[in-house]
Computed example of a mutant assay.
Amino acid sequence: MKLIEGMTLAHSWLMACEHLLAKPGWVDTTVVLHIKEPTRVRQQDKAVADTLDGFLIAHEQYNSHTVAETIFPGYEYVRRGLDGVYKDYPDEIFPRIKGHPQFRHWGTYAHRLLRRTDGDGREYNPLAELIKKMRQKNPVRASYEIGLGFGFELATYDDDEDRGSRLGGPCLSHLSFKLIDKKVHLTAMYRSHYYIQRAYGNLLGLARLQAFVADQVGVTAGPLVCHSTMAVLEHGKEWGWKKGEVEPLVAACRDKTRETTPSVDTHR
């Protein structure tokens, strides 16, 4: 078990990669990232992200923004506002994603958060319902008891669809939002996490989702926690790069944190 406390997404991701490099087989269980300011992007953070994206693109993989969009359609939110998230993404964008050859295994998170069907066959929006509850001025006190305090839960694993698959399917299993001191906190649970191909993009998508919820509730974003029940620094033919390329990538990212000025900040 490893708890990693970092300031930003890139800072936390890089420390996790360095931790995994020291583990046998570059694998560890119960790796927990606690990111204090998930929406903050320092100059050196951008340099780390650009280095990783350059590596992924050179190996014909998706960049971090593309991975992030599978968790939350931030691009649609910027372009079209709330309708872009609640209507345009599920009605226009997702039908195109369904035709992708990897659709069964990846890319369905955002849709699962935005469109569900209840037991009576009625369609509803889980994310909108969650935000509606968080906006309530007088929430029922009993719902915050027995260790469940301040809890708002969204599940992404669907027993009906996913129970028959041994491999593939959603690695992001659960999202838990909390509203504490006018800040939205988010905890994400991953059943497995691949730190080169997916993890940074996953963190970016989660931070965008968290910022969206905070914006809709009228508060600010608090810390982001990401719990990987299995974390891997992956390599091999199935990934598209050799083991010998991983350590130089992590070292290059670390060098970027030394080359840039820590005091220059932006916000995502």
Rank of each mutant, 00 (worst) to 15 (best):
K46M: 11
A199N: 10
A58N: 14
L179F: 11
W13Y: 11
A110Y: 01
K182V: 00
V27N: 09
G121L: 09
T187H: 14
P223F: 08
E123P: 02
A155C: 04
L186S: 12
W106R: 12
S228D: 07
A49W: 00
V219R: 14
D118S: 08
R268E: 12
I131K: 04
E238V: 00
I131S: 07
Q44R: 07
D215R: 08
G99K: 03
I57A: 10
I180T: 06
K2N: 15
L33G: 03
T66C: 02
E69D: 09
H59E: 07
H65W: 04
I146N: 14
D83R: 03
L20D: 12
D255R: 12
I196E: 00
Y157K: 07
Y144F: 13
Q44C: 02
L203F: 12
P90F: 08
H174I: 06
D181P: 04
K87E: 03
M7K: 14
K137D: 11
K2L: 14
L204P: 01
L172G: 13
L21I: 05
E18C: 00
P101Q: 09
A142M: 10
S192L: 05
E18M: 05
A142L: 15
A16T: 03
D159V: 08
E69N: 11
V67C: 12
I57H: 10
H267E: 15
R115K: 15
K87N: 11
R96M: 10
T261V: 03
L233A: 08
Y109N: 08
Q102V: 12
T108V: 05
Y144N: 15
A49D: 06
P90A: 13
N138P: 00
C171R: 05
N63M: 09
Y75D: 05
A16M: 10
T156Y: 01
Y109D: 05
F152Q: 13
A211R: 15
R208Y: 01
D88Q: 11
A10T: 03
D45V: 09
S176H: 15
K36Y: 03
A110N: 03
G205Y: 08
Y62G: 07
L130P: 02
A49K: 06
S173A: 14
H65G: 13
R40M: 07
V48M: 11
R191M: 08
A142G: 06
T257P: 13
G6Q: 09
P101W: 02
S228N: 06
R254M: 01
H267L: 06
W241V: 00
A68F: 11
V184T: 13
N202D: 15
K87G: 03
E259P: 04
E123H: 03
S64A: 14
Y124E: 01
Y157G: 13
L249C: 03
T220V: 07
I97P: 02
L175H: 08
S192D: 09
E153D: 15
M134Y: 02
R116M: 02
E153W: 06
L33N: 01
F94V: 00
P139S: 09
K183Q: 14
G25Y: 04
N125Q: 10
L56R: 15
K46Y: 01
E145D: 04
H59N: 09
T51W: 04
E76R: 06
I57N: 01
Q43Y: 02
P223W: 07
L52I: 10
F103K: 08
P101R: 00
V213P: 05
D91K: 12
